[in-house]
Structure formats: C-alpha cells, structure tokens
Amino acid sequence: MKKLAIACLPVLLAGCSTYQQFIERMHTDTLVYQCDEKTLTVKRNNPREQVSFVQDDKLLTLQQGLSASGVRYTDGIYVFWSKGDSATVYKRDTMVLNNCQLIPER
C-alpha cells in the first residue's frame, strides 16, 4: 500500500500544479490598448498584482506600486500607469508609449 501511495504522489503533485496554472489563467485579464506608437497587449494578473507586456523586444513583468491616482506598475526601470481606459508607459521617466486607449472587447 505504501508503494502505491509513493507511486501516485508525483501524479497528484502534477495535478496540483496544473490546477494552480488553471487558476492563474482564470485571474489574468488580457487588455489591448491602441497607443500613438503601436498596439500594446497587457496581461494583468490581479491576485499577483502585476502586469506583463513586451517592450523593447523584452517581456516585462511589473509589480503594482503606489499611485495617487489610477494604477501604477513598475520594475524600477519601466512604469505602466493606467487610469480608466487610458494608459502610459515610461522608461526611466521618459514616456515611451503615449495616448494608449483601451480597445473594448468585442
């Protein structure tokens, strides 16, 4: 009986991992913005309080930070700031994506 339990343990743990990934996907929103420069696709994970997007050919993951107004995410170099249906992206205090407007889901 012990051998059977030990043999089943990896399968059970793999199932937990798959379940956790499923839950993560359920709590991740995909937001698409049309900016002056390009279209920006942002993945927002509410439980982890982070956003991910590609900028300068790199996948960035930014953590939510303090903001007087709207929601601000940063990694110390990049900042994604959104308020309502608009957003802006900064790199070291220089605006790199401006006038980003959320494209409504169809």
Rank of each mutant, 00 (worst) to 15 (best):
K2T: 14
K2C: 06
L4S: 10
L4E: 15
I6H: 04
I6A: 05
I6E: 08
A7T: 11
C8L: 15
L9Y: 12
P10N: 03
V11E: 01
L12D: 01
L12A: 12
L12I: 14
L13D: 04
L13M: 09
A14S: 12
A14M: 15
A14D: 03
G15E: 04
G15C: 05
G15K: 06
C16A: 11
S17T: 13
T18Y: 15
Y19K: 05
Y19G: 00
Q20D: 09
Q20P: 02
Q20V: 08
I23P: 01
E24D: 15
E24M: 04
E24W: 12
R25V: 04
M26L: 13
M26C: 00
M26D: 05
T28H: 08
T28F: 03
T28A: 00
D29H: 11
D29A: 10
T30K: 12
L31V: 11
L31S: 05
V32Q: 03
V32Y: 02
V32D: 01
Y33C: 01
Q34I: 06
C35T: 12
C35Y: 05
D36V: 12
D36L: 10
E37I: 08
T39Q: 13
L40M: 12
L40V: 15
V42E: 06
V42G: 05
V42W: 06
K43H: 11
K43P: 02
R44W: 14
N45Y: 11
N45K: 04
N45A: 06
N46W: 10
P47W: 08
P47A: 01
R48S: 07
R48W: 12
R48V: 04
Q50A: 07
Q50D: 15
V51M: 05
S52N: 04
F53K: 10
F53G: 07
F53D: 07
Q55K: 06
Q55C: 00
D56P: 11
D57C: 00
K58W: 11
L59D: 11
L60F: 09
L60R: 14
L60K: 11
T61R: 10
Q64E: 14
G65L: 09
G65P: 13
L66A: 05
L66M: 06
S67R: 03
S67E: 04
S69D: 15
V71G: 00
R72S: 10
Y73P: 13
D75V: 08
D75G: 03
G76S: 07
G76R: 08
I77L: 05
I77S: 12
I77M: 03
Y78I: 04
V79N: 07
F80H: 10
W81L: 02
W81V: 03
W81S: 03
W81P: 02
G84F: 10
D85Y: 08
S86Y: 08
S86I: 13
A87D: 06
A87K: 09
T88Q: 14
T88G: 01
T88E: 13
Y90C: 00
Y90P: 00
K91S: 01
R92E: 15
D93L: 05
D93M: 07
D93P: 01
T94R: 14
T94D: 12
T94V: 13
M95K: 15
M95Q: 15
V96T: 14
L97M: 07
L97V: 07
N98Y: 08
N99V: 06
Q101T: 15
I103A: 02
I103Q: 13
P104Y: 11
P104C: 01
E105L: 06
R106T: 11
R106D: 07
